[in-house]
Amino acid sequence: MLSTDAQVWATVIAYVGLVIGCAGIIVPVIPGSILNLFVLIGWGVAVNSTMGWSGAAGGILLTIIGIAASWVLTGNRLKKLEVPNRVIAIAALSAVVGMFALPGPGLLIGFVVGLFIAEWVRHSTAREALATTKGTLVAVGIGLGIELLCAGAAFIALTMGVFLHFTTV
């Protein structure tokens, strides 16, 4: 078991890691939820107490629920819109190009522009492309929102674990 000072530092690092993970959910340059899973597991190992693991386990469960809900809900909405995976892949590649061409907002702008152009080519009319682009953005937004909400709940679970761990040590 680590010393109390080392556990405090592990806790600080865990919170910083979770904040970076949440940012990775919003701006998907880093796999945010996967990072959060590793952070929560690492913190549980670092403090290695029943109370600490209960908080970490709650956070891990909430993160997994967020990932699964995001995939399922986004995937179902995209299937209803009949948006093929290649369109999403083109939008993702455009987002990467946008990120380098215009650091900051370029990621979002690149995704939207790439999505619209791919849909325009697929549908041959701007009106249909705009409609499916809007629907796709809503689907992706809902998925990210749910994943971020679950990441926030995992943050709270970690905080409860931190409180319980340090008050019982």
Rank of each mutant, 00 (worst) to 15 (best):
N85H: 05
I67V: 15
I30N: 10
A101I: 15
I34Q: 14
F100S: 10
L115G: 04
L78E: 04
I30C: 04
V113G: 14
A46W: 13
G55K: 05
V121H: 11
K79W: 01
I34V: 15
S54V: 07
A57I: 14
V87L: 05
L107A: 11
I65N: 10
A92N: 13
M99G: 12
A69H: 04
P103Q: 05
W53G: 01
P103K: 02
L107Q: 11
A46N: 10
R86K: 12
K80M: 12
A68D: 00
W43S: 10
L102K: 00
V47M: 13
F116L: 15
I65G: 03
F111P: 08
A56P: 12
F111L: 14
L35D: 11
V121R: 15
A56W: 00
S54M: 14
T63G: 01
A92I: 13
M51R: 07
T50D: 11
G106W: 07
V113K: 07
V113I: 15
L40A: 06
F116G: 01
V83L: 04
G110W: 02
V72T: 07
I65Y: 03
S33M: 05
I64M: 05
I30W: 03
V96T: 11
K79L: 12
K80E: 15
A68Q: 00
S54Y: 03
A118M: 05
P31H: 12
A56V: 05
I30T: 08
K80S: 14
P103V: 09
P28A: 04
V113S: 14
T74G: 03
L81K: 03
G55D: 06
I88F: 10
G55C: 09
L115V: 08
N36Y: 07
A91V: 04
I109G: 03
L62R: 02
F100K: 06
L40W: 02
M51S: 14
I88N: 07
G42K: 13
L81Q: 00
L107R: 01
W43N: 10
A92V: 15
F116S: 09
S49V: 04
G55V: 01
V87M: 09
V29Q: 13
E119T: 05
M51C: 00
M51D: 15
F111A: 12
G106D: 06
G104V: 09
L81R: 02
N76W: 04
L62D: 01
V45F: 13
W120P: 01
A101S: 12
I30R: 04
G104W: 06
S49Q: 01
I60W: 00
L108T: 07
A92L: 15
T74V: 02
I41P: 00
G58T: 01
G104A: 05
A95R: 08
N76D: 12
N36L: 09
I30S: 06
F38W: 11
A57H: 00
P105N: 05
K80L: 11
G55I: 10
P105R: 06
T63Q: 01
L61P: 01
N48H: 13
R122N: 02
V39R: 02
A92P: 11
V47A: 13
V47Y: 12
L102C: 03
G42F: 11
I34R: 00
P84S: 09
T63L: 02
L107Y: 12
I90G: 01
A56H: 07
I109S: 03
A56T: 14
N76F: 08
